[in-house]
Design a protein around this nucleic acid. Sequence first.
DNA 1: GCCACCATCCCCAAAGATGGGGAGAACGGT
DNA 2: ACCGTTCTCCCCATCTTTGGGGATGGTGGC
Lengths: 214, 214
Amino acid sequence: MSASISVSIFEDHEGLREALSELILQAPGYHLAGAYAHANDLETTLAQDLPDMILMDISMPGLSGTEAVKQIHQEYPDLPVLMLTVFEDDDHIFEALCAGASGYLLKNTPPDRLLEAIRETLLGGSAMTPLIARRALHLFRQMAIEPERPDYQLTPKETEVLGHLVQGLSYKMIGAAMDIGYETVRSHMKAIYEKLHVVSMTEAVAKAIREGLV
Amino acid sequence: MSASISVSIFEDHEGLREALSELILQAPGYHLAGAYAHANDLETTLAQDLPDMILMDISMPGLSGTEAVKQIHQEYPDLPVLMLTVFEDDDHIFEALCAGASGYLLKNTPPDRLLEAIRETLLGGSAMTPLIARRALHLFRQMAIEPERPDYQLTPKETEVLGHLVQGLSYKMIGAAMDIGYETVRSHMKAIYEKLHVVSMTEAVAKAIREGLV
DNA sequence: GCCACCATCCCCAAAGATGGGGAGAACGGT
DNA sequence: ACCGTTCTCCCCATCTTTGGGGATGGTGGC
């Protein structure tokens, strides 16, 4: 549609910033909306340039790239941001991706791969170097997998009692709900306390919820 | 190190299976460990072939690709599996990635890109088509952001009391921990009960934990 | 047949929690 | 200066929970 795709660059390292600018300038179909050494004037800059996408260094003086992405994502939810970084550690990846980055490339990515990534990003894809993708996947899996829940060997009835307890019921109400006597509920509770190594309802409830016992 | 990298293929569509086999066979440095139309004999097959990596269709008769990946991941945790699929929907992606897939490519990926992906996978990367990566990222973000927590307008002291309660402390212990009187703890608890619309410690604890109030 | 385990119920006495009141001091805002 | 909120503490009566016992019947394994 548009005659040319406009790109804004935020990168504090002058050499790289110019190299990137050069890359955009020489690429057919693209033009440079702006190139900046920091993101401190992000709002006004964006309002002026109105780029179609952004290349953002993750580490910059002042407003960090991650913070910048957060702001951009709030103001312009559909504006894709491609992160450039030398970092490969999990925290940076995690934060940037959560902040709303559309992709995550290492700075040593060759120019033609970078252009390709830009194209893919504009098409709605998410470019990542495979190693970054690997890290992201690991993080992903860690979050998805439940930590493992200990087994306290609760009997079915005990589990049921605990379930009702977590719902906020009193001994008496639990007895009514399970159609057993008050004293029986107590017996189960005593067993639960023993097995869970707790001494009060609140502890039992906390442990039951936190460890997914219900 | 090894003279040649061995690849096993699981793909029920005969044409594609042969095309993939051909691709591996003609690629320098690779050889075909085996090509199968299903993964039902997975264990014996793997034990015989001992491939360096696997190409796995996600939809196959009998044991599904996702299930197969799970098993592979348990038996051979370091054996990379590259998923091939026509599906792009979130559930498949999510399951496969959680199951331990190392990458996720659409079947229309061009051969040279596929070979590249195989190389990247063996180097410890995770190849994904940008669109898949995008989906994965979205899923990732959805999991990372907490669902929103209601605000019950608890005062600082009330929040602190609630925190101790969740730790399993009694009124008396909370008073000691906060260096305030027993009756004061009660007053806070009364306020908490009102604001949280609960009537017992257990309910308060359950609500506090579940809604991230602490 | 015996033993371990589970589920059921009972008693007593002590400790804790709950509901319903009230009240004073400190603080910020209008 | 007045009002609302928060934090602090108090009393009383009642209900609930907790720890210490013990008892019965059923079920399944050995």
